[in-house]
Design a protein around this nucleic acid. Sequence first.
DNA 1: TCGCTCTAGTTAGAACCTATAACCAGTAGC
DNA 2: GCTACTGGTTATAGGTTCTAACTAGAGCGA
Lengths: 214, 214
Amino acid sequence: MTDAGPTSRERYRAQVRAEIKQHAWEQIAEAGVPALSLNAIAKKLGMSGPALYRYFANRDDLVTALIRDAYRSVADTVRAAYDGGADLAGLAHAIRDWAREDPQRYFLIYGTPVPGYHAPEDTTAISHEVMAVLIEACGARPAEAAPTPFDTHLEDHREWAGGHPAPAAVLHRALAFWTRLHGVLSLELAGHFAGMRFDAGLLIDEEVAALTAG
Amino acid sequence: MTDAGPTSRERYRAQVRAEIKQHAWEQIAEAGVPALSLNAIAKKLGMSGPALYRYFANRDDLVTALIRDAYRSVADTVRAAYDGGADLAGLAHAIRDWAREDPQRYFLIYGTPVPGYHAPEDTTAISHEVMAVLIEACGARPAEAAPTPFDTHLEDHREWAGGHPAPAAVLHRALAFWTRLHGVLSLELAGHFAGMRFDAGLLIDEEVAALTAG
DNA sequence: TCGCTCTAGTTAGAACCTATAACCAGTAGC
DNA sequence: GCTACTGGTTATAGGTTCTAACTAGAGCGA
């Protein structure tokens, strides 16, 4: 064989990195990203402080790795749901379930941005993956209504769709699916519906349904 | 007169508190809330570290004050726009302009929540103020369509509307206005539309328009 | 006007944090 | 078996929040 596979050192390294990230996720779920402490993680792993810097260059590097994993996770979730035959409503609920499983993971992607921080190149590629699935799913239902002003505007700004040949109305629908879902979901996860005891899932259903009914 | 008004000490205190908050806003705009440093603020004000604790009990107390101000500011903006005769589209753009003026201020209210943190009581009261205006604005256009399942669901969960007598369809519309606007706006502000060079304002216009057309 | 009190500031210091430097033991591979 | 690299260590610098103890001075009543 040309490739001997990972050496034992490499396997060990990957294992420790995974354990670090695991503890990081737990800390984030408990108190949010700002409370993430490399020191505390090292202690829990039985190693002392600076040892952790053998595995991640610095705090930002660890957080970036988590962000990357979060993107990968949501993309896989969407892909799996779509391959499983989910329609738009199904996709919406798959994403919602994924988000509620670990709200802080959702906000790591879609929450408050850090001024000056730019997500690494490959995460935008993963975003495109997700968007491609959404466009695909939105294309299932043909567009019947007359093109809106935003549709014609989109016709001139469709590079982001990665050359997808869908008509602008479909791109529009995919965008609106994304923004509407995020709108309800992020407010739900952030607790802004706390006082109002309605079912956010129902609202999502109608917001998504209205997409294809319009 | 029965009230002698604020003493000079009180005025001084208010002045310094305002200056502290001013510098805090600048720091947050530059690098986000996590980078907010009481020490750095104190230095800029020419006082040394712990002096700042005479004005704010701790870091959280300062941030809470900023959150309160942010709520007050958005509520005033919405109120002013509505009193100025703005329709739903006008309200949406007033809020968008307010948010783009200082994105981090927007995210202080609607961004990533800190697990365990609960906004003070009065901010939820301000939220109700905003929601009341939205309901009012949504009631201007009568509801013509048949009630949806979510409408009937809302009929049983309308306490949050503060006893507003609007029909459930109107409450529904106000909610959807809020979630749709937040969906587009927060993704725009967070830079998720960066690669796709379309005009988020147009998308908002159509999302809002679709509310009343449906 | 004297004197008390309360306020706004000071410095010192504890307990964290990130991150670097310098060192050391043990493993992998030639 | 020797060498080089890896993964750990401790020490340390410099940052943070926040408390404690103290001081200078302003305001106010007798």
